[in-house]
């Protein structure tokens, strides 16, 4: 009868904190538990490091020790299922929303939503920017724009963009935090940077309409319906400069 499947199952249960698997030895058998602890520790530290790479602002907000405990708790409910650890963490924001010790910090989940979306944008597929000259000739009533695969719009219940920005290296606090919800625009620019920008309701409507395939004129109308004095030009120029408009078709 094959012994290896049982060995693997028992070793893994031991890593999770269960009994030591049978059959472990060392030159001094009294040390077996200390030695097995190296594997337990490697796993906990490795997962915490992987999560910290993905969620650096959460780590900064809660501190190193709390983050390590948080990573252990999260790994207990959502284990990585792929050796590509960049794919782990999809459920971290919802975990934070419901994590009782963080109940007094209800914005944590939204900050994590921004960080997870930034990771996805960082690894998103490549796409070449359009030539800005297409705008000179085009009929806005017929022009449809395609945005870079990294472009993500997030509606957040908390001012998480402002919190994220204030927790970037070198950023200082700038006055009072805005109250209420924010919409985040996340994209990867041509230098591979992944900036995060808060959009007003007009800008959010514009990007939302473009992502849904509206014409440029249609998207501008939706933006003006959301915010009467909205001018779409500054955001469109910013998208062009970032290389985030990758398709244009009449």
């Amino acid at each position: 009868m094959p012994a290896h499947p049982d060995f693997i199952a028992r070793f893994e249960a031991g890593l999770r904190g269960g009994d030591l698997p049978p059959g472990l030895t060392a030159r001094d058998p009294a040390e077996v538990e200390r030695r097995f602890a190296v594997y337990r520790n490697n796993q906990a530290v490795g997962l915490s490091q992987a999560l910290a790479l993905r969620f650096p602002v959460i780590r900064r907000l809660v501190g190193e020790d709390f983050f390590a405990a948080l990573a252990r708790a999260y790994a207990g409910v959502e284990r990585p299922v792929s050796p590509v650890l960049a794919e782990w963490g999809a459920g971290f924001s919802e975990f934070l929303d419901r994590f009782p010790p963080l109940a007094a910090y209800p914005y944590m989940g939204d900050v994590a939503r921004i960080e997870y979306a930034r990771g996805r944008a960082f690894h998103a597929a490549d796409a070449a920017p359009v030539d800005p000259a297409v705008f000179a000739m085009a009929d806005p009533g017929r022009l449809r724009l395609g945005l870079h695969p990294s472009v993500t719009l997030l509606s957040l219940a908390h001012p998480a963009v402002s919190i994220w920005q204030r927790n970037q290296p070198g950023a200082g606090a700038k006055g009072a935090l805005p109250a209420g919800p924010e919409t985040a625009l996340i994209l990867r620019d041509t230098t591979f940077d992944v900036p995060v920008r808060a959009l007003d309701v007009g800008e959010a409507a514009l990007i939302g309409a473009l992502l849904e395939g509206a014409t440029l004129a249609g998207a501008a109308e939706q933006a003006q319906a959301a915010l009467s004095d909205h001018n779409p030009q500054p955001l469109l120029v910013a998208l062009l400069r970032a290389g985030a408009i990758t398709h244009a078709e009449e």
């Binding site: 290896h4 060995f7 070793f11 992987a50 284990r79 299922v81 650890l85």
Partner: peptide, 25 residues
């Protein structure tokens, strides 16, 4: 080494016994 159990990725290079069974596997 091994690093997965079922669908779960364990994020470490874990040891195994050296037997005829594991050699064949």
């Amino acid at each position: 080494a091994w690093s997965s159990h079922g669908a779960e990725y364990l994020n470490d290079l874990l040891p195994l016994p050296y037997t005829e069974e594991t050699l064949a596997l």
